[in-house]
């Protein structure tokens, strides 16, 4: 018979998992709105405007539309894989957040208990994130394969090739951060960057900015966003791997994509921008979670900003950037970082 304390701890974990999952399910709603707004304003348009003030209720309208759309399974498609693929791409995107720390610990006012703002502090957190995050590619590949469509299959194949090329560079960037912070645990990583913003890994000169550039480029390629969105290249592949998907299954793919974007921004914040540490010591008490959310939000905006600035790379350019530039640069940078850490 487990005692009360154990039960409470388990309950706390369940509550935390539930809250994080709910937040992640809810996040794509404002993000789609923001993305369309940013797109509109960069193109000197207004973006969503009709549904609610400034189009704020547009995501809900979209959600209702997706819920009521017909769920089509193409003729001769592999039904099991076709239905499984959206889940395979969504679950890893959510599972990554088990290891991500959003803050140190806060006092919850009503139960008077110290609650940590992370689900688990793994001592190999970064490894776990890279491993689980890499799994979500199966959803895309299987979705492309199971659709019985040329476009979808090509999208899936491209995605696989892209993944193989950029996962290496991304892992190197993670190794670099691990060397700079002396730990694989994300919590320790953030703690090692406390103090002023000069302690952040991105300002660990001269290697920090290079690691960040490598991580950012590889991350963009990992989450299939412009300029690396060859898997859903509208110009040549209709809609890539999710050409044949409609309704809620399509929504799951979009959900996974947005959650992956949040993952990359949050990871960048944790690894390079000092997590929830304030950039400067300010006299007014600002909760650390504010800094965390503000930094992640700025990065998400940056991703959207890039999306409407850069054109899409060609497939061979993508491979050239991955294998001929990022990986050699990462290797040299690893050497320099090693010498600096002796």
């Amino acid at each position: 018979m487990p005692d009360i304390a154990t039960l409470l701890a388990v309950l706390l974990i369940v509550v935390k998992v539930g809250v994080v999952t709910m937040i992640l399910f809810g996040l794509p709603l404002p993000l789609t709105w923001l993305e369309r707004k940013v797109a509109g304003h960069i193109q000197v348009r207004l973006g969503p405007w009709r549904v609610g003030p400034h189009g704020l209720l547009q995501p809900f309208a979209d959600m209702i539309k997706l819920l009521f759309k017909e769920d089509i399974v193409p003729y001769k498609a592999d039904k099991l894989l076709f239905n499984l693929a959206p889940l395979l791409s969504m679950v890893p995107a959510f599972a990554v957040f088990v290891a991500i720390p959003f803050g140190d610990s806060v006092m919850v006012p009503f139960i008077n208990k110290e609650v940590t703002l992370y689900i688990s502090d793994m001592n190999v957190g970064i490894l776990y994130i890279l491993a689980i995050g890499g799994l979500s590619i199966y959803g895309i590949i299987l979705g492309g394969w199971a659709s019985n469509s040329k476009y979808a299959l090509l999208g899936g194949l491209r995605s696989a090739a892209q993944m193989i090329s950029y996962e290496v560079a991304m892992s190197f960037a993670a190794v670099g951060v691990v060397m700079m912070s002396n730990s694989l645990s994300l919590l320790e990583m953030v703690k090692s960057q406390s103090g002023s913003f000069l302690n952040w890994n991105i300002f660990y000169l001269p290697v920090g900015p290079v690691w960040f550039a490598i991580f950012l480029i590889a991350g963009l390629a990992e989450i299939n966003r412009i300029p690396f969105d060859l898997t859903e290249d509208e110009g040549t592949l209709a809609a890539g791997f999710h050409t044949e998907y409609s309704g809620m299954k399509f929504a799951f793919f979009m959900l996974a994509e947005y959650v992956a974007m949040v993952t990359i921004s949050v990871l960048s914040v944790v690894m390079f921008f000092g997590g929830w540490n304030a950039p400067l010591q300010v006299p007014v008490p600002i909760p650390p979670i504010f800094w965390f959310v503000a930094k992640a939000g700025a990065l998400i905006y940056f991703f959207m900003w890039i999306r409407f600035t850069l054109p899409r790379y060609r497939y061979d350019q993508l491979m050239t950037i991955g294998w001929k530039i990022l990986i050699p640069v990462a290797l040299v940078n690893l050497l320099v970082t090693g010498f600096m850490r002796i």
Binding site: V38, G40, H41, I42, Q43, V44, R45, L46, W49, A213, W305, I306, F308, T309, L310
Partner: peptide, 24 residues
């Protein structure tokens, strides 16, 4: 130094903060 990239980003940022020409 990503010079061209930064140049492109400034252009789009300029448009982002500029007033929309959409007639409502």
């Amino acid at each position: 130094l990503f010079t061209d990239f930064v140049k492109g980003l400034t252009v789009t940022l300029g448009y982002n903060i500029s007033k929309s020409i959409t007639m409502r």
